[in-house]
Amino acid sequence: MFGGNRILEPLLVWAGRDILGMEGRLEFFSTGSGDTSMAFASLFVLLCLSLIGTVIWSVLDRKRPSYNAAFYWLTVVLRIFLVFFMFTYGFAKIYKTQFAGPSLIRLLQPVGDMSPMGLAWTYMAQSEGFNLFTGLMEVLGGLLLIPKRTQSLGGLVVFGVMLQVFMMNMFYDIPVKLYSAHLMLFGLFLFTADWKRFSHIFIKNKPTEALSYYKPTKDPTYHAVMMWFKVAGMLVLFAIMGYQGYSSERSYGDKRPKPQYYGIWEAEEFIKNQDTIAPLITRSDRWRYLVIDRKGYALVKKMNDSLERFSFVLDSSGTNLSLRNRSDTLSDPNFVIKQVDSLQLTLQGVLEQDSLMIRFRARDLSQFRLINRGFHWINETPYNR
């Protein structure tokens, strides 16, 4: 959201350091967080520039009786912006790509070890139905913003939906607080443009009159063209986002193809340099689980609960394996992997000059309560485990 402020970067750094007293990383970099030090410095500087510009404009143009045209085009820009991002976030939930999972490694992670964001992500990822509901509500808000006559209702729906998102970001420390706040306030702004009629009907119990919408031109051809442009634009957005969501869900979402040896494999026997290592929680070099969730990658959870990430690349035979630290530039096979049956797997090779022979047994994924509980209309007692 603040990526267009690079020409203001020296000003932002100065404001962040000398005015706001920030000690964080005041530079533009991509981490997936929208709440960086630079983002807050950008917000502060843009707010100051906006206030200064408002004062100057108000003084220089103080005799103008109204800004109907400017207000009209402002609402048009906000509606286009909100429609695009409501569709983007909505389809990412309908096709469950934003909250894919829960991942296999999450199933092994104690709740107490999760970050608040990790807990919130797992909560969302667990339910396909709740993703569908929240996605449809976001798409509904975007749809209602397209016609002029329903923009107030659309603004109210967007405000309600984004208020919930904003509160979740705030209270679960999800670093999209500034962005979700902007979307929420944009929806509120569009709704409050029609606040008087709303308050008359729902609060004051008074009659109200139909609103005479401002029109930039009275040419009927223009309005017909704009109507069909909106219809065509909506259909194009639906087609593009629907296709992207469908393909993404099957590329890296819940419906992606599972890699060979997919699952959670528990190390029953671990032999390192001809020495059998007992499964003691004090051992940091003894593997407890090998987790294969995504093609090309693997996670190892050790006895002391530490995690190590590896590249996991099989050859065409499916038995010769390159299992290396992800920073390792080598790619030659260094292990032989064999699946004895559906429950047993053996791994033998050399990792960082240590010879390893490991025998694994598959964990039954259906035994995880988070997966197997399902939905029940009738609950004689609460099932709060």
Rank of each mutant, 00 (worst) to 15 (best):
A100S: 14
L140M: 09
I105W: 10
F87A: 06
L145S: 02
M86G: 11
R106C: 07
M167Y: 10
E128V: 11
L108A: 05
S115E: 14
L132M: 13
M168N: 13
M137F: 13
G112P: 10
T192M: 11
G101K: 05
W121E: 09
L178D: 14
I146Q: 01
F91A: 12
I146L: 11
M184R: 03
G112S: 09
V139H: 08
L140D: 08
M168W: 02
A92E: 15
G142V: 10
L156D: 08
F99M: 07
K148S: 08
L108R: 00
L82S: 13
F171C: 11
G90Q: 04
M124P: 06
D173K: 02
M168R: 00
G101S: 08
Q126K: 09
L188H: 02
F84N: 02
K93S: 07
F159G: 09
Y172H: 06
I94R: 00
S180C: 07
I146R: 00
F166A: 08
F99K: 00
E138Q: 12
E128H: 06
Q164W: 08
M162D: 00
I174L: 07
G141V: 08
S115V: 10
L145I: 09
L153T: 15
W121C: 06
D113Q: 11
S115D: 12
S152F: 01
G160S: 12
D113R: 05
R106G: 06
L183Q: 06
Q151V: 04
F91P: 15
G141R: 04
L190I: 15
S127Q: 08
S152Y: 02
A193T: 14
L188E: 04
V139C: 14
F133K: 04
M162Q: 00
M114V: 09
K96N: 14
G160Y: 02
L185F: 12
G141S: 09
T88W: 15
A120V: 00
Q164D: 13
N131R: 01
L143E: 10
S127P: 13
Y123I: 12
L144G: 13
P147C: 02
E128L: 10
M117S: 07
L153Y: 09
A100T: 10
M167C: 12
L82A: 12
F133R: 06
G101C: 09
F191S: 03
L153W: 06
M124I: 03
F130K: 12
G135I: 07
V157Y: 01
A193Q: 08
A120D: 04
T150M: 01
